[in-house]
């Protein structure tokens, strides 16, 4: 079987592209990193790709707001490409900055070009960038990236990851359609109902939301970094705990690859 091919999209300020590419390759995909300028000039570069990945970083410096400028550029120039991925049984994943971008393109939650966005990712409640590991509870019934995953332990590293909805009812709607793919939680119960205070909920997200999938389950955006936990030695306590060789984050990339097998 041919390896599924991944297009890792980079832009000025993208900085998790190489390790994300490595994670996909470790999971069995073939990958290519392509600059946004090249793709705008020649969208057919994406024709062979089955998985579109928007990796982490600070696209355009996160100037104005995180992911804002890249999202605008994609809306302006690559709308068709995104729709094509969504309608032709392909996958899209946005990690950290990639999630911030995806949410603003309307590909995760439909909107009318920003004006009536249903939800956003904005400044952490702590008011600052933070790098820390968090426990996550997964809703795997819709999202293909999370198949077989119930809980995870992954690092977050961001300043603007607080998920805020315009209407509180949106959380219920998304929850009942299994689109709240990943939520911050407290071990050992991994419960997401009730209080998940800081720092377990590292940014103060409404509903403790850490990741969101679209209604097809084939588009996933998440703030945590699965590519930063693909090896045992990535775990912050690997020197004191018994752990399998592969990190928990690798499963997300493997699920994406297995979707095409």
């Amino acid at each position: 079987m041919a390896k599924p091919s991944v297009l890792v999209l980079r832009a000025p300020g993208t900085n998790c592209d190489q390790e994300t590419q490595f994670a996909f390759e470790r999971a069995g995909a073939s990958t290519e990193r392509i600059h946004i300028n090249q793709l705008i000039e020649n969208p057919s570069l994406a024709n062979d790709a089955q998985i579109l990945c928007l990796p982490g970083g600070f696209s355009y410096g996160d100037d104005i707001a995180a992911g804002r400028i890249l999202a605008g550029q994609i809306r302006n120039h690559l709308c068709d490409l995104l729709n094509d991925f969504k309608t032709s049984d392909k996958l899209i994943i946005g990690i950290c900055n990639g999630f911030q971008v995806l949410l603003q393109t309307g590909v995760l939650l439909a909107d009318n070009f920003g004006e009536s966005a249903q939800a956003t990712l904005t400044d952490n409640k702590s008011g600052k960038f933070e790098d820390r590991w968090v426990y996550l509870a997964a809703d795997n019934s819709r999202c293909v990236f999370l198949k077989g995953i119930e809980k995870m332990y992954l690092p977050v590293a961001h300043a603007e990851g607080r998920f805020v909805t315009r209407e509180p009812s949106l959380l219920d709607t998304l929850g009942s359609s299994s689109q709240l793919a990943l939520r911050y939680c407290r071990p050992p119960a991994f419960a997401t109902n009730g209080k998940v205070p800081y720092p377990e909920n590292p940014n103060g997200s409404d509903g403790h939301v850490a990741g969101l999938c679209d209604d097809t389950g084939r588009v996933l955006g998440l703030m945590p970094h699965p590519e930063r936990f693909i090896d045992r030695t990535h775990h912050p306590r690997w020197t004191r705990e018994e752990l399998p060789e592969n990190g928990e984050g690798l499963r997300i990339f493997e699920n994406a690859v297995e979707y095409f097998s």
Partner: peptide
């Protein structure tokens, strides 16, 4: 320390 991204590039071993 937490304000610095100490894990980007994916090579973190001892934090």
């Amino acid at each position: 320390i937490r304000q610095y991204d100490h894990e980007v590039q994916g090579g973190s071993v001892i934090k």
